[in-house]
Simulated scan of single mutants.
Amino acid sequence: MSDSLSARTTRITGHGGDEIEAYLARPDGEAPRGGVVVIHHMPGYDRATKEIVRRFAELGYDAICPNLYSREAPGASPDDAAATARAQGGVPDERLVGDVAGAASHLRALPTSNGRVGVIGYCSGGRQSVLAACHLDLDAAVDCYGAFVTGTPPEGFPLKVTNLVDQLPGLRAPLLGLFGVEDRFPGPEQVAELEQILTAEGKEFEFHSYEGAGHAFFSVDRPSYNVPAANDGWERITAFYAKHLGG
């Protein structure tokens, strides 16, 4: 674990060859290490997400977060960019996969890369983490309370999103899922359905659900923050990535 790191805004090649903004954090030193792609939540490419990127660098990984709203609202504040993206139905799945692929390639091209890359996402990013792991050659995936991996969006839901049930047989990476028992999207029944599908498909996964925790329990800047759940979740993420990414 390192307490010395650097972080900066950079540009990477995303879906379709588009150049998009990204936030990159790296621990000091030249030792080989794994990489982590952080997929931001629906509120956007914000300060809280960048803090998570730096935390992974502190844990010893090269970490990057692509700005998924670079095209809709370049230069806008996180709130304005998220509102623009939401009004357009959210990030298309195909484009998300392309942007994560570009971020993973950027990490693997760094001179410190050991070739292994994991992905993690929160809220909408949790679903997108699973989506990416169904289509890309990644070494580990973490789903933090991603809605609509299973289940059906309610009537009037603002995002153009479907579940991933038909894509789950293609999951290519070990999956860690962290959920709140008090959450509605995903609710415990949706988590149970996901567990049943992955078990039937013979996939490698581990799930943990926290009593008293609702949606967004990792969010330190929101009332939903749940200290015991978040602390235990970070311990499990740390152990999971150490096992699959090295470190």
Rank of each mutant, 00 (worst) to 15 (best):
L24R: 07
N114D: 04
L198R: 04
G16H: 10
H215F: 09
G14S: 05
R11I: 12
M42S: 06
P188K: 11
Y241E: 01
L171H: 06
S6E: 14
G180P: 03
R95P: 00
D3V: 07
P169H: 08
L5I: 15
Q167L: 09
D137I: 01
T9D: 08
G115P: 09
G17R: 04
G60F: 04
P228S: 10
G14W: 00
A216N: 03
C65S: 14
A31Y: 08
H40P: 04
A48I: 15
E51M: 15
V53K: 02
C144Q: 00
R172C: 06
C134M: 04
A48M: 15
G246W: 00
T10I: 14
L136I: 08
V53Y: 05
E195V: 00
R95T: 09
G17Y: 02
V142T: 12
P188G: 10
A103G: 09
R184F: 12
V161K: 03
E51V: 15
G90K: 01
L136Q: 07
G126H: 01
G156A: 12
R33I: 02
D18T: 15
E204K: 14
H40S: 12
Y122H: 06
D46I: 15
A76N: 13
S209F: 06
Y69C: 07
L245W: 12
A140F: 11
A82I: 04
V37N: 06
Y145R: 05
G125Q: 03
